[in-house]
Computed example of a mutant assay.
Amino acid sequence: MRDEESIPASSIAATLLDWYDRHARVLPWRIPPGDTRMPDPYRVWLSEVMLQQTTVAAVKDYFHRFTERWPTVSDLAAAEDAAVMGEWAGLGYYARARNLLKCARVVTDDHGGRFPDTHDALLALPGIGPYTAAAISAIAFNRPETVMDGNVERVMARLYDIHTPLPAAKPELRAHAAALTPDRRPGDYAQAVMDLGATICTPKSPACGICPLRAPCTARRQGTAALLPRKSPKKPKPTRQGIIYLVRRVDGAWLLERRPDKGLLGGMLGWPGSEWGEAPTEAPPLDAEWTTLPAQVRHTFTHFHLVLTVRTAVVAADARPTTGSFLGIDAFRPSDLPTVMRKAFDLWRGA
């Protein structure tokens, strides 16, 4: 076994690339190491947007559906907003879907359907931040950009035994990651570090014994790997309350409304309801005989917990709601609803 002195910092990237060549994850948006094809920037961009705050396992099916339905960025740009939002339903963080359309249309209209190949030009596109711009630059265009996600932060924190809590440690972690980013195969290297964090240098119980960087890893030698990275305590999430109304017409049509583009669940279909807060006010969309379901919908967003009371009613064919519109039974797909709204539908269906 090699000791820590035999792998200088300058060779860490080479060591990791050698490991990646043998152990790279097989992912639907990835060109495997050794393949001479260049990655499709559209597929790289789409996967990176989908993977924000979401696991690989959750993204795979969505990625397949999107690329089958819209194989190119120009196909996506031409899609109806409602169709894209419907396909995105359940993936969460719905501003990503709205920005996806905006970006696809800018790339199509202003760049001839081709993604720009520099970090700064990518950063100017809607919905693309520093991480995504760096990932596309490195993976799709093989530019030596420093790609920083949670996996990379964890690897750097352990490799250099950094105990400064996140998020304060981010600049220091980035500096170390930048120093290791090679000019040779930077796209493969970026994916290698992320794979290492996802499969070996995991948040809990890291597999240090089989890690390709076990020799130079300072935290392994110090016995602190499982403690890192440290994180500042999170503030407790508040709980908000709300009321939603599931209205079904006698012909089977459902009353739905599309939420405003800006704000939580923006642009998504949903059930009419009250504002969400400490003491919600009744806001029925029409006069009806309401039945309250015995169970409540519980859902957690990034910044708060939500508890929804569900009221249901069946109304006449000539009912006139004050908000939303009825969607025929043939046009209604529960899968088009965001998760919290689908939970309410599932609750009704199981009642």
Rank of each mutant, 00 (worst) to 15 (best):
A190V: 10
L101A: 04
R37N: 12
R185T: 12
D18H: 06
R311M: 05
I31H: 13
I7C: 05
A207Y: 13
R258S: 12
T146G: 02
L228R: 03
G187E: 05
H305I: 00
V310M: 01
V56Y: 07
I244R: 01
E257R: 03
A319R: 11
E278N: 00
S47P: 05
P280L: 02
A95F: 10
T224V: 12
R96Q: 06
G34K: 11
D117E: 14
V152F: 08
K102N: 10
D110I: 15
P229T: 09
Y20L: 09
L91T: 03
T302Y: 08
L91V: 05
E275C: 00
L166Q: 03
T67N: 01
R154E: 11
A138N: 09
E278G: 01
H299I: 09
L16S: 02
V340Y: 15
E68S: 05
R143G: 12
S11W: 11
C211Y: 02
A219D: 03
D110S: 13
L125P: 11
R342P: 15
K262E: 11
T67C: 06
V59I: 14
M194H: 08
R185A: 15
D251I: 13
R214A: 15
R220F: 12
I31S: 13
R114F: 13
M38S: 12
C217K: 10
R249Q: 15
T164R: 02
W348S: 00
I12W: 14
P167S: 02
R214T: 15
I200H: 09
G266P: 08
L16G: 04
T202S: 14
G263N: 03
A279T: 04
R65L: 13
R320D: 14
W19V: 04
A178R: 07
P28T: 13
C201E: 07
E153L: 11
M194E: 06
R184C: 10
A190H: 07
G113A: 10
P171D: 05
F326H: 06
C201K: 07
P229I: 08
P8L: 08
M268K: 03
T72D: 05
C217V: 08
D35T: 14
T164Y: 01
A82E: 08
A225I: 06
A82T: 12
L228Y: 06
S335N: 09
P238M: 00
P186Y: 10
K60L: 10
P294S: 08
A215E: 14
D183P: 02
A133D: 02
A121V: 13
Y93Q: 01
G273P: 06
Q241D: 00
V315W: 07
T224A: 09
P39F: 14
S47K: 03
R258H: 08
A319S: 13
R311D: 02
E4L: 07
E257V: 15
H163T: 15
G350A: 07
L196W: 08
S335C: 05
L17F: 05
W348H: 04
L264M: 10
L122A: 11
D21H: 12
W276F: 11
W19I: 04
E275S: 04
M1A: 13
T339D: 15
K343D: 15
D18T: 09
G113Q: 03
